[in-house]
């Protein structure tokens, strides 16, 4: 029987299931217990599962990440919640220098089966220190697997797959998705964390996106469909390693592509996707590759400026339209 729930509820059920299924799994983070999580994902879980499994921590990201790496090396399956990706910069040393490197530097003697969940993205008027999309930085680092669930089903089932991975996995939950509702189709009990997904099939232009930009890309595809332009929408799902096969297969048919990313353009994930298209699919292109990304500014606080700085369906549709029907 298909279940309808919010993205937040899907995250919560995923954590609860994981903890109930495996005594080695626990969740730690700032305000995850008593307060129920800054985005209320873990509301009620400490009362149900106990303080050993849902652990409130001090505000000290690098220390928390170090504790989580150590716990993972010692055989536990920690889930670390970091309030937003912006704060994870304080934990970069443990994530990049320890978690990502130890399996390699120990010659495989130590696995780091750690999962770090973070909120990412803008749209809630939380200003420049709480709104950036920095997941692309982590996608730069070998040794990490980077996930970006954009649907309720992925929010519900990516965590289990991430915990089963012996290497560190980072999951980025977009703040504007928590209230989104969706169906989990019958019979879906797990998802892969390797492949991109075609969320909407189309033949004229490919829109490549992920996370919080997926609903905007789908809205743009609706607008385009009304004009007779058939857009294919690809949800990358996994930001590292990138599934370029799915992108290239789509491009081989549509021959035009727009990349949509809430990160900035310069030195970014969208730039990497563009580069990989040039390397892998250059001869299939029948138009230049276009990007719709965040404006190159620290995210504004004012609502109208914040919206203006972010990719929007109208802008995505305009970019795609200009490729299919050049002015």
């Amino acid at each position: 029987m298909s279940a309808r729930m919010t993205y937040r509820e899907a995250c919560r059920q995923a954590i609860r299931d994981a903890i109930l299924a495996d005594p080695r799994v626990f969740l730690m983070g700032e305000d995850v217990g008593r307060y129920g999580g800054c985005y209320a994902v873990t509301k009620g879980l400490m009362e149900e599962l106990g303080e050993d499994r849902i652990r409130d921590t001090p505000l000290s990201e690098n220390t928390l990440a170090g504790v989580a790496v150590g716990a993972a090396m010692a055989g536990m399956r920690p889930i670390l919640e970091i309030m937003t990706v912006n704060f994870s910069l304080l934990a970069l040393d443990q994530i990049v220098n320890s978690a990502a490197t130890i399996p390699h530097m120990s010659g495989g003697q130590f696995a780091v089966p750690l999962v770090i969940r973070m909120a990412t993205g803008a749209g809630r008027q939380l200003a420049a220190q709480h709104s950036h999309s920095l997941e692309g930085w982590y996608a730069h680092v070998p040794g990490l697997r980077i996930l970006a669930p954009a649907t309720v089903a992925d929010a519900r089932f990516m965590l289990a797959a991430a915990l089963a991975d012996p290497n560190p996995v980072l999951i980025f939950e977009h703040v504007m998705l928590y209230n989104a509702e969706g169906e989990i189709p019958d019979g879906i009990r797990s998802v892969d964390i390797a492949r991109a997904a075609v969320r909407r099939a189309g033949g004229d232009v490919t829109i490549v996106t992920y996370g919080g930009s997926l609903p905007k890309a789908l809205a743009a595809a609706d607008m385009l469909a009304a004009e007779g332009i058939s857009a294919e929408v690809i949800d990358l799902r996994v930001l590292r390693p990138l599934d370029m096969e799915t992108v290239a297969a789509s491009l081989a048919r549509t021959r035009r592509v727009v990349i949509v990313d809430e990160g900035w353009k310069a030195g970014s994930l969208s730039a990497e996707i563009m580069a990989r298209i040039m390397e892998d699919a250059f001869w299939d292109l029948d138009a230049p590759v276009r990007r719709v990304c965040a404006a190159e500014v620290p995210m504004p606080y004012a609502a109208h400026l914040e919206q203006a700085a972010l990719p929007q369906p109208e802008g995505i549709a305009a970019a795609a339209r200009a490729l299919v029907k050049p002015p």
Partner: peptide, 13 residues
């Protein structure tokens, strides 16, 4: 100079 036919990679191929 600069009049080389501008063509997309797919069209050129």
């Amino acid at each position: 100079a600069g009049t080389r036919a501008r063509a997309t990679p797919a069209a050129r191929q």
